[in-house]
Design a protein around this nucleic acid. Structure first.
Lengths: 215, 215
DNA sequence: TAGATTGTTAATCGATTAACAATC
DNA sequence: TAGATTGTTAATCGATTAACAATC
């Protein structure tokens, strides 16, 4: 419950995109940028960009534009990337392993502290310096190691029971790759869903509908 | 360019969710459902549900509700899941392998026909009955095998050049896991993005902002 | 028939765009 | 100073919700 509480969802969803484009400009050595230039690059209107950025404060300078470097940093701060939230991964199958090895958690405000699977044959394998533990040790682990968030890479069938367990343990933040809708059971949790099936079906729809525009 | 051309993006993005919940009801043996019941389950208002479904036709029956089975089938049809679009996977790293092994392409309107990687050491490996080919054979493959869509699981740095090549070959539909913005270069393509970094940063923001509501 | 629930129109709400005064 | 570009208010647009007549 801080000062950003009232920021609307569409604005928040655009922040990572700003962050990405500003990062690219930064790498190229660009030091200043106007909302008009960002607009051309990113495909948002300049007006929208100014509105969005102004939700958080006047980062620009009239007649000049925005400093790429400081705007990049500001957005990083707004996103909270300086945090280091402890996250555990549930499910060390293909998807879980890919997520564990593929993501730069440290650059996104997280730290991967534990990996759990129910399959004995996976226990002991080491992914990114972290050994896979058996699910039975989950409770003890969370008791001994403060855990901020859980990454759910388990099959849909395993999700209801597991998520209830995680909730009982006290975890309230979830990055959810399972196709189960966590928010059905509790409404005092934060869930960010990655529904790959849904995404693929939307692509299918758009191809089928012969639609060429962006969605 | 068909009759669904005018359906708005928010409606389309909700369709897979309807499909998912109706599938669950179907499995449970439920045969009819009212917009009110769906509303309670899914967290959309009953009004929104009726509006959404009516974009595509009057599937319901006044005083009765909707037939779970036929509504499920209708939405499947609207999504175009009966298609079998040929898709190739570019990049056989952790993420690519996870996507290849994890997804039920056939249930979502696709068929995985080829896997390509630039890394010689990955060539020859077999993922889901499909051998990984070297990227150099991409053009020939697409020439000989009709290809509808490309799944991009390559690093951001490789994406601009590769996507340009794919565009030249004639591919216009993309499921994009790379962090590169494909739509920057061409606007006559369909891109469905899965930006895992963005998703993780949004979770970080929401935890940091202490926001408990759904986004 | 009476009750229930849709399909659909109208009202509201919120997000985006346009415009422009402030100011660097 | 003059030109450029922001911050911010007002106008527009679109999506969601509410209401209710149609009808099963």
């Amino acid at each position: 419950m801080n000062k950003f509480n009232s920021i609307s969802a569409p604005v928040i969803r655009r922040l990572p995109r700003y962050y990405r484009f500003l990062g690219e400009l930064k790498e190229k050595g660009v030091t200043r940028v106007s909302s008009k230039e960002l607009s051309d690059k990113m495909g948002f209107t300049a007006s929208l960009i100014r509105q969005d950025l102004n939700c958080f404060g006047g980062f620009g300078q009239q007649g000049y534009g925005y400093s790429v470097d400081s705007l990049y940093n500001e957005i990083g701060q707004i996103l909270g990337l300086e945090h280091s939230y402890n996250a555990i991964l549930l499910g060390a199958g293909n998807l879980g392993r890919a997520v564990a090895t593929h993501m730069s958690f440290e650059k996104r405000g997280f730290r991967l502290t534990g990996i759990f699977d129910i399959d004995e044959s996976k226990v002991g394998a080491v992914i990114r310096d972290i050994p896979v533990s058996h699910m039975s040790g989950l409770e003890k682990f969370c008791f001994e190691n403060h855990t901020d968030a859980a990454i759910l890479c388990v099959p849909k069938s395993a999700a209801p029971e597991l998520s209830e367990k995680l909730y009982q343990i006290g975890i309230r933040n979830y990055w959810n790759f399972s196709h189960y809708d966590l928010s059905v059971d509790h409404d005092d949790i934060i869930v960010e869903n990655v529904h790959l099936n849904d995404s693929l079906m939307i692509l299918c729809y758009r191809i089928s509908a012969g639609e060429g525009e962006k969605l």
